[in-house]
Design a protein around this nucleic acid. Structure first.
Lengths: 239, 239
DNA sequence: GTCGGACCTTGCCCCTGGGGCAAGGTCAAA
DNA sequence: TTTGACCTTGCCCCAGGGGCAAGGTCCGAC
C-alpha cells in the first residue's frame, strides 16, 4: 500500500496528474486510509504505467479510458494503429527538421520547387537580389491565387529565360531600376522590349498572353516595388 | 493582394489560426479593403510559413514571436537548439514505440530488468501464473516503496532460487495454494520450510533477514492473495 | 437584378492535459 | 514539540486553437 506521491514517482508523473486521471475516470479511485489519504496497490501502478505509455504515444485520455477496459483484441488492434501513426509522426518531425534547416536561408520553403529552381537560375545570371526578391514575392502571390496557372506560367517563363535575347532584355530591365527617369537608354529599351514581344507574341497559344511583367504587377502593391525609371519605362511601353 | 482564406490555404492552416496569430502579435495585421476584409501580401505568406515551421517544431507561439524579430545570429542559434530538441523528441518517440510494443505482453514495463528476468525464471520453472503475478505485484510495491532495498533483495532472491532445495520448497508452496486446509502435507511442508530457513539463516549478513514471504506479505492487501491452505500454513510456521 | 453559395467580420464559449496556488490536515524523525 | 515533507479539496490559469452565432460581402449563373 503506497501513497499518491510514491505512485506518481514510480510512473514519473506528478500527483496532480494522478488525481487528474481519477477525475477523468482513467484510474480507479483507490481506498483511503484512516486520515483520508489515498492508498494504492500494485494494480494501480500497472494501470498508471499503461496510461502513461499510451499518453506518451499521443493517445487522448478519453480514448485511453476506453482502451483500458476493452478486450485484448481491440487493444491489440488499437496498439497497432497507434504505433502506425507514431511512425508517421516521427516521419513528420523529420520533415519539420528539414524545413527548419531551410529556414536559415533559401526560398524553397515558400515557393514550389520549379519556382525555386527558376529563382536560382536568376541569381546565377547575375540578377539583383532586389529583383529576385520581387520575383519570389510575385510567384508566392500567383501560386496562392491560382496554383494551376502559376505552374503553367513558371514553365513558360523558364523557357523564356533560356532565350539569350530575352535574358539580355531582362537584365537590362533589372539594371534600369536605378537609372534616372531622363536616361536616354530608356526609350531605346522600351522599343526593343516591344519589338521582342511583338515578334514572340504569335508563338503564344490560345490561352491568355503571359506578360512577364505580371510578376512585377502582382508585387506592385508592395513598398519599393518600383522606381522612377521603371515608372517611366512603363509609360513608354504603353505609348 | 490575397484574402485570409487564400493565405491560410497557402500555409495549410485555418483562417482561425491566422486570426489567432494576429491576436498574439505574431503576424502583423494587414491593411483592409473597402469592405473591411484583410488583404495580405507575399511578406505575410513568408512570415506565416516561418511561423508554421517553428510551430510544427513545437516552439511555443510566444517564443516564435520573439524569434521573428530577433537578429539573424539569435535566430540561427535558436534554430540549432530547436533542431536539437526535435532530435531528442524523435528519439523519445522511438522509445515510446518500444514500450508500446511491450504493452502487448510481458512485465518489463512495470518492473526493473532484474525483476523481469527473475519473473521469467519463475515461469520457466513451472511456477503458476497466479504466483508469478503475485510476485510481480509484490516487486512493484517494493520497488516503489524502496528501490535500493528492492535491488538488494532481488539479487538475494535470484541466488536463493538457484538453490535446488529452495526451488523445491518454493514450488510446493505454490502448489499448496489450492490444497485443503486439512491436507496432511501442510504440517510437513511447514516443518521443512522452517528447517531450511534455520539452516540458511546463519549465512545471512548483518542487514535485516530477507524473508522470501515478504513478497506475499506486500501483496497481501490485494484480493485473492491468499487461500485457506496458505493461511493454515502461515499459522503452522508461526507456531 | 437578384439569387445562392462561398467567402469575410467580430465575439464568445469550449476542449485537452494538466500547472499553480491557497488553505488547510497529517506524519515521521530529531 | 517542532519542522519539513507529505496529503486533502478547490479554484483559476495556460496554449492553441475549434465551433458556432449573427451578421456583411462577393461573384457567377440565371
Amino acid at each position: 500500500m503506497i501513497t499518491i506521491g510514491q505512485l506518481a514517482d514510480y510512473a514519473g508523473v506528478t500527483t496532480k496528474a494522478v488525481r487528474h486521471y481519477h477525475e477523468r475516470g482513467l484510474l480507479a479511485e483507490p481506498g483511503r486510509d484512516s486520515s483520508g489519504y489515498r492508498r494504492y496497490t500494485a494494480k494501480d501502478a500497472v494501470d498508471l504505467v499503461k496510461i502513461r505509455t499510451l499518453a506518451n504515444a499521443g493517445v487522448p485520455l478519453t480514448r485511453i479510458k476506453d482502451l483500458l477496459d476493452a478486450d485484448q483484441d481491440t487493444l491489440t488492434a488499437a496498439i497497432t494503429e497507434i504505433d502506425h501513426n507514431l511512425h508517421d509522426r516521427i516521419a513528420q518531425l523529420r520533415r519539420t527538421r528539414d524545413q527548419l534547416a531551410q529556414l536559415r536561408g533559401g526560398d524553397r520553403l515558400f515557393v514550389s520547387p520549379e519556382v525555386a529552381d527558376y529563382l536560382d537560375d536568376l541569381r546565377e545570371l547575375g540578377v539583383s537580389e532586389r529583383q529576385t526578391h520581387l520575383e519570389r514575392d510575385g510567384w508566392i502571390l500567383m501560386q496562392t491565387a491560382s496554383p494551376e496557372d502559376a505552374s503553367v506560367w513558371i514553365a513558360e517563363k523558364r523557357e523564356l529565360i533560356a532565350d539569350p535575347e530575352f535574358r539580355a532584355l531582362y537584365l537590362e530591365h533589372d539594371a534600369a531600376y536605378d537609372w534616372s527617369p531622363d536616361d536616354p537608354r530608356l526609350p531605346a529599351l522600351a522599343d526593343r522590349t516591344r519589338t521582342w514581344f511583338a515578334s514572340h507574341h504569335s508563338r503564344s497559344e490560345t490561352r491568355p498572353v503571359h506578360n512577364p511583367a505580371i510578376a512585377r504587377l502582382a508585387a506592385q502593391s508592395q513598398p519599393g516595388a518600383s522606381s522612377p525609371a521603371w515608372d517611366r519605362l512603363a509609360q513608354l511601353m504603353k505609348g
